[in-house]
Simulated scan of single mutants.
Amino acid sequence: MALGFASAAMAEMGPIESRQACMKANGKMMGVMVPMMKGEKPFDKAAIDAAMADEAAACGGWAGWWGEDTKAGGAVETYAKDEIWTDKAGFEAAGMAYGKANEAVKAAADEASFKAAFPALGASCQGCHEKFRRPKG
């Protein structure tokens, strides 16, 4: 039921707000996983699965949020760089790398496989942010 409410709320947002909500959900997901990766918290597959489900629900409309009309942002500040639109192939490749890494983490059934899969997920986030997202501030 919570996913239904989240989806309804996301549908009412514009594309930039939806992208930002997706990134916040991604940050929360990473906040669950990074301490496990560092050994600061015990491996908890259920917590990982829940965080990944929340992120998936928040990011479900990703493909439709990158229209040419969202480049400037208008009344809503955006941190998206022009490279998203000028290097579409690179942006799509970065998204595919993230999706592949995300699936590998999702498939990890134990701490060892999680710790083997997680670095690629972190690297895909970092790589995309470096090339396609301008710093806040």
Rank of each mutant, 00 (worst) to 15 (best):
A50L: 08
G90F: 11
F91R: 10
K38E: 11
A108W: 00
V76I: 15
F118E: 11
A53R: 12
E68F: 03
P42V: 00
R134E: 08
F114N: 06
M96Y: 00
A94N: 03
F114H: 06
G61D: 08
R133F: 08
H129F: 06
F91I: 06
C22V: 01
W66P: 12
V32I: 13
G99H: 04
E111V: 10
E111T: 12
F5L: 15
A117E: 02
Q126L: 10
G95K: 00
L121Q: 09
G31M: 02
G122R: 06
G64M: 09
G127T: 08
K131D: 05
A120Y: 02
A112I: 01
G4D: 14
A123N: 01
E83A: 15
M1A: 15
A116S: 15
W65H: 09
Y98P: 01
C59K: 09
A97F: 01
C125P: 04
G27N: 10
A120R: 02
G14M: 09
E92C: 01
A58M: 13
W62M: 11
A57R: 02
S113V: 10
E111N: 10
K100P: 01
E77V: 12
A108N: 02
R19K: 09
A58S: 14
A75H: 05
A75F: 11
F118L: 12
A93C: 06
